[in-house]
């Protein structure tokens, strides 16, 4: 059994008022030096069977159609192996590593 982690973040050009509210609260709590906070979602999927190309393709599809709304959000998919090591999965059209999608 392997775990696949999907991180979903608002695209850089989309305002994140929740992240801003968190950032503004930091100085009040005595935490200085944090200039920006962006808030996102993390999904941990426990996958039955091997995490091969087919499984990852299906996970990519479910991330793209359901976990993320690619109008406003980017996502990344990572595989977490049993020993805890992580490996990124090649970037799709809406992956965060590609930056803003107009």
């Amino acid at each position: 059994m392997a775990r696949v982690v999907v991180d979903v973040m608002l695209k850089p050009e989309i305002l994140d008022p929740q992240g801003q509210a968190v950032q503004r609260a930091l100085p009040r709590l005595g935490f200085e030096g944090i200039s920006d906070v962006r808030q996102g979602k993390r999904f941990e999927l426990e996958v039955e069977g091997p995490v091969d190309g087919d499984a990852l393709a299906r996970i990519h599809e479910l991330a793209e159609t359901f976990l993320a709304n690619t109008v406003i959000e980017n996502f990344t998919v990572r595989v977490q192996d049993a020993d805890g090591s992580e490996r990124p999965v090649e970037a799709g059209p809406h992956a965060a590593s590609e930056g803003a999608v107009a």
């Binding site: 929740q18 709304n69 406003i72």
Partner: peptide, 11 residues
């Protein structure tokens, strides 16, 4: 419909 609805900017 195109676009999306997001959190009100003033929260």
């Amino acid at each position: 419909l195109p676009g999306a609805l997001t959190r009100n900017d003033h929260l």
